[in-house]
Nucleic acid binder design. Structure first.
Lengths: 209, 209
DNA sequence: ACATTAAAGTTAGACACTGTAACATTAATG
DNA sequence: CATTAATGTTACAGTGTCTAACTTTAATGT
């Protein structure tokens, strides 16, 4: 039995794990409200403390948001890790599945978008954050490298190609997330759109000029 | 001399054109602060009226933001109109230039992004707004149609292709705007990126399977 | 011309949220 | 077991949105 950390809720005055509780509370509120503009006091209430308590753990609201953003990036990079496992290295399917997963995350959690990719986003505090944000990308660039080898496409710069594929997914996801596709394609199929876009793009790479 | 509208500033109590003045003030504040979170009272001050005056013209802050968003869409669609004039119908250059212009607008006015494409965005009040938001897209889809004809690419669905090209530009712009490209490509050249991505994509369309 | 009504300002203030100050309680340490 | 650091509390100052009640000017009908 661990005595140093009071994970049990019986001790009243000191929460024991308020920092994490606030992150979770904030993330829940963000999901429930569908936007980032939760009130500090609500996160505090949900964690069972007073309105000023959060400021012992976070300098200000932005710092709490930043912590939430880390959680979101962990979830995204974990999703990418699983996706990679499900599709053979060198296949176009792995690339497409990464894009689909990325977009899926966006459209299922649109309220986290600004936190992750917008100007509200984390200014990359430490190198650990940095790794969280970039690990997904390197999984994509590895998938691209392998695909080039497999298909015999000359690939001087996998980073460049991965960036372009990322941009495609980012664009499709961003438009889908906010309902812009429906203005022109009433019953837009986002999966089909990213699959088809990616195929066309990869086809362009394979083309003999 | 028009007597019905008091455009001269000598009449003190009634502003004469407060609605427009507020829209301009808000747009200026947004640009200056680099974010949407200007205070209503600052827009009012800039227009030379009291803090409550804006509420005679806008139900709430969101309604003022919505009006600003219209102005932004006018600017964007005007830019697209000019771009089209500068490149021959049927050329890939017209398509690329539209993408470049779109991205340019994004990166030069990132503070308007959320207003135009995010969830803060206008819920399309009337059909006039609707036209503003969609006119740029139809210029793209026309450019795509013409390019397909020119190059002999079969084009069942120009809307679908335009959507994909839009997504590419939207993605590149979105990533560039928030400095995400620099994480992987320190000296990223956004123009080159959209040109190359578009070429590759169009190349994929031309490829004989 | 003049009275009446509508439109568009004003000041005062209610309410919500962020963040700080001063104080209280518990945990950790020598 | 005394002291100090960490982590809570309440009270409140500051900022911002929006409403209420009132005032001034513009527009309208006879």
């Amino acid at each position: 039995m661990n005595k140093t950390k009071a994970t049990d809720k019986k001790n009243c005055y000191h929460h024991g794990n308020l920092r994490d509780a606030l992150i979770i509370a904030a993330a829940e509120l963000i999901e429930e409200n569908g936007s980032l503009d939760f009130a500090m006091i609500d996160a505090a209430r949900r964690a069972g403390v007073s309105s000023a308590a959060p400021y012992r753990h976070f300098k200000d609201r932005d710092e709490l948001l930043q912590a939430v953003s880390q959680v979101a990036f962990i979830a995204l990079s974990e999703a990418a890790r699983l996706t990679v496992q499900e599709h053979p290295r060198g296949s176009a399917e792995r690339i497409i599945a990464l894009g689909r997963g990325y977009i899926c995350f966006m459209t299922e959690h649109p309220e986290f978008y600004d936190l992750m990719w917008g100007k509200t986003g984390v200014p990359m505090a430490d190198s650990e954050d940095d790794e969280l944000q970039t690990s997904g990308f390197y999984q994509l660039s590895d998938a691209v490298s392998a695909w080039c080898q497999e298909t015999g496409v000359e690939c001087k710069d996998p980073i460049d190609l991965a960036t372009k594929l990322w941009a495609i997914a980012h664009g499709v996801g961003g438009l889908a997330m906010n309902g812009h596709l429906e203005k022109f394609i009433p019953a837009a199929d986002v999966d089909l759109l990213i699959e088809s876009s990616t195929h066309t793009f990869l086809g362009g790479l394979q083309r003999k000029n």
